[in-house]
Simulated scan of single mutants.
Amino acid sequence: MKILVVRPSPSGEELVKNLNNTGIPSWHFSLFDFYPSTSSISLSEKINELYESKIIVIFSKKSVFYTNLYLKNNNLTWPFHVKYYAIGKSSAFFLQKYIKKKLLFLYKKKIVKVY
């Protein structure tokens, strides 16, 4: 049996390499990848929307990483007045390193059926 890893590059490739090195056959097929934008429509054109927002939803650590990289390179900070919501605990903790605010997130509840 082989494991198919669909995690985005380059972390998906790194996971496959580690699995193969430990004797677990696996291969990588990414449905999408994250890279810094080279688009003519960039974050610099959207930065005002970031500061005018009331709510920011974070879907991945990579989105936090690249946004923080842009903000840092342009001597900007994450807006403090907004409410942040993160999808996933690891994304929430990753975001907390940069925004320095208390985080609230949902814990997955185990669903128990009673017969």
Rank of each mutant, 00 (worst) to 15 (best):
M1L: 13
I3S: 00
I3Q: 02
I3D: 01
V5D: 04
V5H: 02
R7H: 00
P10K: 06
G12Y: 00
G12W: 02
E13N: 08
E14G: 00
L15P: 02
L15E: 00
V16Q: 05
N18A: 11
I24L: 13
P25K: 10
S26Q: 06
W27P: 01
H28Y: 08
S30P: 15
L31T: 05
F32K: 00
F32I: 11
F34D: 03
F34Y: 09
Y35S: 10
I41S: 08
S42Y: 05
L43R: 05
L43F: 11
E45C: 12
E45D: 14
L50K: 01
Y51N: 07
S53H: 09
K54G: 07
I55V: 05
V64C: 04
Y66Q: 03
T67S: 09
T67W: 06
N68A: 12
N68L: 15
N68H: 11
N68E: 10
L69F: 01
L71C: 05
K72R: 14
K72D: 04
L76G: 05
F80L: 13
H81N: 09
Y84N: 13
Y84D: 07
Y85G: 05
Y85Q: 13
A86R: 08
G88I: 05
K89F: 12
S90W: 01
S91D: 03
L95V: 01
L95I: 06
K97R: 13
K97D: 07
Y98T: 07
Y98N: 15
Y98L: 12
Y98W: 14
K100N: 15
K100F: 09
K101C: 10
K101P: 11
L103E: 10
L104H: 07
F105T: 06
F105L: 15
K108T: 05
I111L: 13
V112K: 15
K113H: 08
V114E: 14
Y115L: 13
Y115R: 10
